[in-house]
Write a protein that binds this DNA or RNA. Structure first.
Lengths: 108, 108
DNA sequence: TCCATATTTCTATGATACTGGAATCATGGA
DNA sequence: TCCATGATTCCAGTATCATAGAAATATGGA
């Protein structure tokens, strides 16, 4: 995993709209959500939401799949997990840490 | 943990200099590093580094302690852990996830 | 007290990002 | 084909952030 990728992911989550959207998708899980549903639930203008979804997708934090007239967005748990792992890599000069494992991968 | 705090932490890590600094502090562990050592190791002008350290400290990601003429910076593992946990809270509509635990707290 | 070193603050400039109105594109049904 | 709905792109104004030179502040030793 490269630094640029990590920065992209962090920057993506460093915004109120995107953080809310991402968390909503995390909660939604495998089922995902459409932009329409998100715009409704979070009270965000459609174009603004679209801008942020593009940002999240570019960062690899969400995936999209067309389903007829709708597009379903889902949180990309595996990518998220890889990003978080990067932050504590080689922790404490390689000594055994209390918690060394990487978190939050989800297969639901 | 509030949204503002998370955003602050994410924004702090969404920068090349700060990400490098934070990772260096993660590797350094309990021992920490001084700005001088970081400036040297990462080849960053002292004032620029100071600006970014302030940002990281404001985000709660690093702590500082004066030791004579130097100031020792350390990664704030507990805060980091809390931030990461927020991202996957209430994951997948509360169903049991493959990995539900929160990561990367370190007691070294 | 005076000096050297470590670190931070001040400041200006340039770059990048957020927002939402209007227009556009895509899909499926009548 | 035509229309309605879902979603994205275009655009412009505004705000926020990154960088580094120069100056200022702390600390400890001579």
């Amino acid at each position: 995993m490269e630094e640029k990728e990590i920065i992209r992911a962090m920057a993506a989550l460093a915004n109120s709209v995107r953080l809310k959207v991402f968390r909503a998708l995390v909660v939604a899980g495998q089922q995902g959500m459409t932009p329409g549903a998100m715009a409704m639930a979070l009270d965000i203008p459609a174009n603004t939401l679209s801008f942020h979804l593009k940002e999240l997708a570019g960062a690899g934090l969400v995936t999209q799949e067309r389903a007829s007239r709708n597009i379903i967005y889902r949180a990309a748990f595996d990518h998220m997990s890889a990003v978080l792992g990067y932050l504590t890599e080689n922790c404490c000069q390689g000594s055994a840490c209390v918690v060394t494992t990487v978190p939050a991968a989800c297969d639901c």
